[in-house]
Design a protein around this nucleic acid. Structure first.
Length: 821
RNA sequence: GUCCGGGUGGCGGAAUUGGCAGACGCGCUAGCUUGAGGUGCUAGUGCCCGCAAGGGCUUAGGGGUUCAAGUCCCCUUUCGGACACCA
């Protein structure tokens, strides 16, 4: 028998121009009455052409967008480019040309690839963050934050990469190394711009209840840990020969009686002040030099021995009057809490390690039933009963904390307090390819915002600028651009030369799509009401903390400004896994790189999309060595072949069709629908495959190709396939006699009556072991089923001479006969 | 070290949420088909014993709850991820 051949290359070329004309994914037509859905893929960075990872992400986002369209929603599924950033700048340095050129070239390449990949994007909303029309609003937002005191400058020790010659955010430091060049990161004191995200720590934490069950639990957990709220108390210790007391932060005020020494962060101003006149100043300075030389890698080493310097000063424990030594050490962090701690070595491992190293006293004040830390070297940190603690004796931890807090507060020696790991967001970068910070520095007026009517403040041309990193921004060399008159007093002044972290760009881009052509404001209230918040966000888990946290922060700020009526930007989040090869991430150096363009050429767009989606749950990694694109091709041609076998006319009444096949079709529609809704796309595809198999059989050996049910089944297959294999589905749709496009055909209504099975198989067990089965009506009663089961010959035989203890029946599924044996 | 996830055939993975474990696919085996190797079709495929009918075992390991456990509880083990001196 000769089979028609399915030619995916031909089909792809055929439909692209037709879809271009049809524009099935244009959103927001004024006469559109469908309810809205906003489906968003994390926008790409334009570094070269799309790779396998993009293909997976966009295939998944596309399934969701196309599904909602079939379900009758007005779907906005936009795309743009996150186009500022270091890779473009580094490429520009290498090629000695403007980063703009490289960037826009790559965007054109990616855009063409996305079209060929049949992404259901609304191309009318595209923008790039490096367009002045976009970064104008970055600057506008910066000034809004500045006006509200949420953007400010301060001196602080920042992560510094000596090789890249730039500041790094905490997230760009991986295990003490620069994520880009693997150079050991050092600290440098610099004056930098910050966004005051810490003001929003509580809301970022508390508003997460809205996301519970809608975002991956893992992401919520990571954000919680990153914000790191802890509750405890600030306790004041009187210091000998010092007027001001020192306040320490502790989460365990119940162990205050066990505080046998105090430690201040060696690199804090407090330590320096205490060292003055202590007689150990020289020793202290030597120690300070030593720890400054330590890189972050040294600091991260596990089992790092505790070091420190006794400052020859003493504090008085506020509850028992004990005179305790004050030490300076690097194991206490200057920027967390108050930069000083009370050390309770019996009940904190770090303090105990330090105490043992320095021969300091250890006093047990909580009886946990474990062995004495003095002898074991293991601090007892669990629950227990207070001992050696005056009025606290006999109390459990929470009662003791309550009691001591009350006591400290009444004596004015302490207050309940909270602390956060979260720190303010360092946003300034000393690089060229980013949004210029719209501030002018004037000798007499200080920080002066660039007037709004002068936005965008464009980047000066890269021509003539040395973009190589040297620790100061290349913008400083653009003298024409740099020197301006102060907008306030008119005196000679200079522009701020730093550019913004590109995370600023991505923290609000999702608000811009609905208003992408609005020249008067970053986004309009009307558009926000129509489209936001994002109903479904799709992207990699690599952005679990920063991008998502910053976006949530911006949303809350804009909400406070009255510009948004919601306070969480992304209602639902799906984190897709990575595409790996032979168990590890693809890379040129590892030699396991699979090129997307090669795969597309060999197997076609639909088969690659299908393989990605069918490989497993979307949040799991796909190992490309486990998937079979040729299997996908085979399945797609099987499905396509069905469309050529249908002989009934378009519009035939399905109600007359073969009932078993109709039931299979409606079951598949129902189950696939449910599976897509719960992100089990691989299962949805499995149901379509089953329907293809059943339909094939019906045509060949069942009701035959002319039966109405065959047409109904094949049309349903085309519509379901349109989510993942749009070319094949469109071709099938045409062969079935329809006009394009199948993407807008609409999900067929499931007939509930056809979901009821004619008969189901009930299982009969004896003591939980299957003994027999019987076909029964799905509506059979427990009593009937039990009677039928007990009258089965095999069961009668098995029950001879035994005593039935009880029978558990769950019609129509199971009968379990419990006997004593 | 702390906090999260996971462990189901040769492989990727299903299991309507406590009710027939292994859907769907890959791979493999046999046969047919196609003018001789990326075609199509049919049948088979968790493991063990058996020619067979049939029987036994099986969701990392162990224990528990239940008429019934991949699913719930406890312990052990192992892999992966995140954070990492945060008081």
């Amino acid at each position: 028998m000769i089979h028609e051949a399915y030619d995916f290359a031909y089909v792809q070329e055929k439909w692209l121009p037709i879809w271009d004309a049809l524009q099935p994914f244009k959103s927001g037509r004024t006469d559109d009455v469908r309810p809205k859905k906003y489906v968003l893929d994390m926008f790409p960075y334009p570094s070269g052409d799309l790779h396998m990872g993009h293909a997976e992400a966009y295939a998944l986002g596309d399934v969701i967008a196309r599904y909602w369209i079939q379900k009758g929603f007005n779907v906005m599924h936009p795309i743009g480019w996150d186009a500022f950033g270091l890779p473009a700048e580094n490429a520009a340095i290498k090629r000695n040309e403007d980063p703009k050129i490289w960037t826009y070239e790559n965007i054109a390449v990616q855009k063409a690839s996305m079209r060929r990949f049949a992404c259901s994007f609304d191309w009318d909303r595209v923008f790039n963050t490096c367009d002045p029309e976009y970064y104008k609003w970055n600057q506008w937002l910066f000034l809004q934050l500045h006006e509200r005191g949420l953007a400010y400058r301060k001196d602080s020790a920042v992560n510094w990469c000596p090789s890249c010659q730039t500041v790094l955010a905490n997230e760009q430091v991986v295990a003490g190394l620069c994520e880009r060049c693997d150079t050991a990161v050092t600290k440098k004191k610099l004056n930098q711009w910050y966004f005051k995200i810490t003001d929003y720590a509580d809301r970022l934490l508390d508003d997460m209840v809205q996301l519970e069950g809608k975002w991956p639990e893992k992401v919520l957990m990571m954000q919680r840990n990153w914000i790191g709220r802890s509750t405890g108390a600030n306790v004041s210790f009187h210091i000998e020969d010092r007027v001001e007391p020192i306040t320490v932060y502790t989460t365990r005020p119940d162990t205050l009686y066990g505080a046998t020494f105090m430690v201040v962060a060696a690199d804090s101003e407090l330590a320096a002040e205490l060292a003055v006149g202590s007689g150990v100043e020289a020793e202290f300075l030597t120690y300070l030099e030593k720890i400054k030389a330590d890189s972050d890698i040294d600091r991260l080493a596990t089992d790092r021995p505790k070091t420190g310097v006794f400052l020859n000063r003493f504090a008085i424990n506020p509850v028992n009057g004990a005179r305790v030594q004050i030490w300076a050490s690097d194991y206490v962090l200057a920027h967390y809490g108050t930069g000083a701690i009370m050390a309770v070595p019996a009940h904190d491992q770090r303090d105990l390690d330090f105490a043992r190293a320095m021969n300091l006293p250890v006093t047990v004040v909580v009886d946990t039933g474990e062995e004495d830390p003095n002898s074991t070297g293991v601090a007892t940190v669990g629950e227990g009963v207070s001992i050696n603690s005056g009025s606290l004796n006999g109390l459990n931890r929470s009662d003791a904390i309550t009691a001591i807090n009350l006591q400290l507060e009444s004596e004015g020696k302490g207050v309940p307090a909270r602390n956060y790991r979260l720190r303010d967001w360092l946003v300034s970068r000393q690089r060229y390819w980013g949004t210029p910070i719209p501030i002018i520095h004037c000798q007499s007026c200080g920080e002066v915002p660039v007037p709004l009517d002068q936005l965008p403040l464009r980047l000066p041309s890269a021509e003539g600028l040395d973009l190589k990193p040297k620790g100061v921004s290349p913008l400083g060399a653009a003298t024409q651009w740099l020197n301006v008159d102060c907008p306030r007093c008119g005196a000679a002044a200079k522009r701020d030369t730093d550019t913004m972290d590109t995370f600023v760009d991505s923290s609000w881009y999702y608000l811009r799509y609905p208003s992408s052509t609005n020249h008067n404001e970053p986004f309009s209230k009307q558009d926000m009401q129509t489209w936001l918040p994002v109903d479904q966000y799709v992207g990699g888990v690599t952005h679990a903390i920063l991008h998502l946290l910053y976006s949530r922060f911006f949303t809350k700020v804009l909400n406070d400004m009255g510009m948004l009526e919601f306070n969480e930007p992304f209602t639902r989040l799906l984190n897709q896994g990575m595409v790996v090869m032979d168990g590890s991430a693809m890379s040129k150096s590892r030699g396991n790189l699979v090129r997307l363009s090669d795969e597309l050429e060999h197997h076609g767009v639909d088969a690659i999309r299908l393989s990605m989606v069918f490989a497993g749950p979307p949040e799991d990694d796909v190992d490309w060595s486990d998937v079979s694109p040729s299997g996908s091709v085979k399945f797609l041609s099987r499905a396509w072949r069905l469309s050529g076998d249908v002989t009934s006319d378009i519009g035939i009444d399905f109600a007359d069709g073969d009932v078993p096949l109709r039931k299979a079709t409606h079951r598949a529609l129902h189950d696939a629908d449910f599976a897509v809704e719960s992100f089990r796309f691989n299962v949805a595809i499995a149901r379509v495959m089953e329907l293809v198999n059943v339909t094939r059989k019906a045509i060949d050996t069942g009701c035959g190709p002319a039966d109405a049910a065959v047409r109904e089944a094949v049309e349903a297959i085309a519509i379901m396939l349109s989510l993942v294999a749009p070319f094949t589905a469109e071709e099938m749709w045409e062969r079935l006699g329809h006009k394009p496009g199948v993407a807008l055909a609409g999900w067929p209504i499931v007939n509930e009556k056809l979901l009821v099975a004619d008969a189901v198989t009930a299982v009969v067990q004896i003591n939980g072991k299957i003994k027999d089965r019987l076909e029964v009506s799905p509506t059979i009663t427990d009593a009937e089923l039990e009677a039928n089961a007990l009258s089965l010959p095999s069961i009668i035989e098995a029950l001879v001479g035994v005593k039935i203890i009880k029978v558990v029946t769950r019609a129509p599924k199971i009968v379990n006969i419990v006997i004593n044996s």
